[in-house]
Amino acid sequence: MRLHDRSLEAMLSSLGQARREGGFSGKAKSYPWQVAARPASGLAGSMRWIRVALPLAAAAAVAVVFVGPGLFGNRAVQDSSKDVLTATLSEHREVLADAESVTTDSTQLECDYNGDGVVDGKDIQAFLDRMQDPTGDPLLQAERLQRCLLGS
């Protein structure tokens, strides 16, 4: 190829501009067409967050059911909360099944609000009673109970 119209100087200037503007870059780790043709694995990767989000959503629903009535004392809220819990539990039964059973280690004993040595649903009323304590942070306490009930 014979280059009549461009001096070497101008070409070097273009080369410098190309370098500055990303015209040269490191090698890609994979071929673009392979990356684009990975919907299955990409989907699996993108769905990974659900494994975290679903238990959190379920825990939040449980918290709403148990804490909501105590906070609002409204029957309509209680009914709707039960519906939310039922729907959440039925939809994510498998996810919740993965949750470990409640144990009675020292952390769990802190959640034993009624002092019967077991962390179970009976602690909820005791927890709600404790919520009347104006010095405690109700949100933090609700979060703790939620963790206890889910065994996480």
Binding site: A18, E21, G22, G23, F24, S25, K27, A28, Y31, P32, W33, V35, A36
Partner: peptide, 30 residues
């Protein structure tokens, strides 16, 4: 790949679009 990227730079002069243009071009070529 280097020359195709340079062609994309020459055509667009858009550093922010280069990766997308180059990858899409290779996908279409494939």
């Amino acid at each position: 790949q280097e020359r195709v990227r340079l062609a994309a730079w020459r055509v667009s002069h858009r550093p922010d679009w280069l990766d997308e243009i180059v990858n899409e071009s290779w996908c279409r070529a494939f």
